[in-house]
Design a protein around this nucleic acid. Structure first.
Lengths: 226, 226
DNA sequence: GAAGTTGTTTGATCAAGGTCAATTTCCGGC
DNA sequence: GCCGGAAATTGACCTTGATCAAACAACTTC
């Protein structure tokens, strides 16, 4: 892990993020005043479950996954964060304890902000507290969506939903490129990689064609009815 | 649904809740100034997924479950709230849209606070915003715990964990009474009621004895090793 | 272009849990 | 204590997805 400073490109990414986008420029500058940047190889662990963490994190590039470990060594992803996403913020309000392990799923660059600084600013400005609440509620909704999908849907249905969530409205046919490896998508959807492959195969008759990372949909309605 | 005012007993329940317990008395009074109370029969729906809600809710007695509906009519619980618990608060920060359906799982009494009032107070006092953040992060952790448990553990393991979380530290044998019907616990653990029954049966050799709602544990260590 | 490595797909098998039905147990009212 | 209704348990069967293995495809390095 190397420690650097923010570039102007990094700043632009952060300014467009969910957390920063609604904050006044002066507030943003105050938060980012001592931000550090770290680079991580794939598989690097940023923090572990139950560990004390005193920073909040933003993905500047790459991919970070949060996962829990079972007693048998198995891992279950509970969230995946891409460029611009904030993570680790809930620890500020949970006795500074991480609720999961964080690992770079690809080579990644991560910005870190001291949570003490963020707390002080949140105590001084309600906009900061409000922005934190929005991020934390958004994360909560994502987790709740996963839980409900796991409990209500089959693997092909979950994959169909994922595909449809990436489809522009009104398009009957479309294609998009997965922003990460298929085994990362499998983890995100709570599936083994083999099960994800099988799910894509089951969707083939409904017009889904897989070409490496590119997913092509030829019949949106068939997918919606899956 | 009948609409009433808070009793002093209701106030006591609220004052001990996670949200109110850290707030100054004057702040609490300001929040509770126009609180209403509603009573609900079992199966009453308080709000539906995607519905606009302009209140936050507290359980004064009974039980409220949040659930999502599948296309086939099946339901998946995503949270269960007991006396003192706050719920529906995340909607304040998610465009006032409920993320799940809320239903009384038993005859219940629920306090309602206008979320506009709460927003104003949160904007004026950082303690209120901080208390909201703690509640929302706690809810998020509960959901993440469920997701991880579903993905990592078998049904008997989930039941064993639930039992152990209700066991006083240091007790080798103990018993407790479930605060709700077994079918509610099944929903909470993401199981069909039959699967819960089977899980209890599988735990019998590990010293778990079920007598109606009373669960008796005869060998804590066996349970921990399950 | 070849070789090696990693990621993905497919096959076979098995375990876990859902579903439906029948039976038993528990609980509340009288 | 009895009775009726609801909840819970148990049995049988089926579906889904995990696991392990083998084969194939894609990507990177030389």
């Amino acid at each position: 892990m190397k420690t650097l400073r923010l570039t102007s490109g990094d700043r632009a990414i952060l300014l467009h993020s969910r957390f920063f986008s609604r904050l006044a420029r002066a507030t943003v500058e105050a938060i980012l005043a001592d931000t550090t940047v770290s680079t991580h190889e794939e598989h690097d662990v940023l923090f572990r479950e139950q560990e004390r963490i005193d920073e909040v994190f933003f993905v500047l590039s790459g991919l970070v996954r949060l996962y829990r470990l079972g007693k048998d060594g198995r891992e279950a992803d509970v969230a995946v964060f891409q460029r611009g996403d904030m993570f680790g913020v809930n620890a500020m309000f949970l006795n500074h304890r991480a609720t999961a392990n964080a690992q770079a799923a690809e080579p990644s660059i991560v910005a870190r902000v001291e949570s003490r600084r963020l707390s002080q600013l949140a105590a001084e400005e309600t906009d900061v507290a409000q922005a934190l609440l929005e991020v934390v509620c958004h994360h909560g909704k994502m987790t709740e969506d996963c839980l409900a999908d796991d409990r209500l849907l089959t693997a092909p249905q979950r994959v169909a939903n994922y595909i449809l969530s990436h489809c522009p409205n009104g398009s009957e046919t479309f294609s998009f490129r997965l922003p990460f490896q298929k085994n990362v998508l499998a983890g995100k959807l709570g599936l083994a990689p083999e099960a994800l492959s099988r799910a894509f195969s089951m969707l083939r008759p409904s017009g889904v064609v897989v070409k490496g990372r590119v997913i092509e949909i030829r019949n949106r309605q068939a997918l919606e009815e899956f």
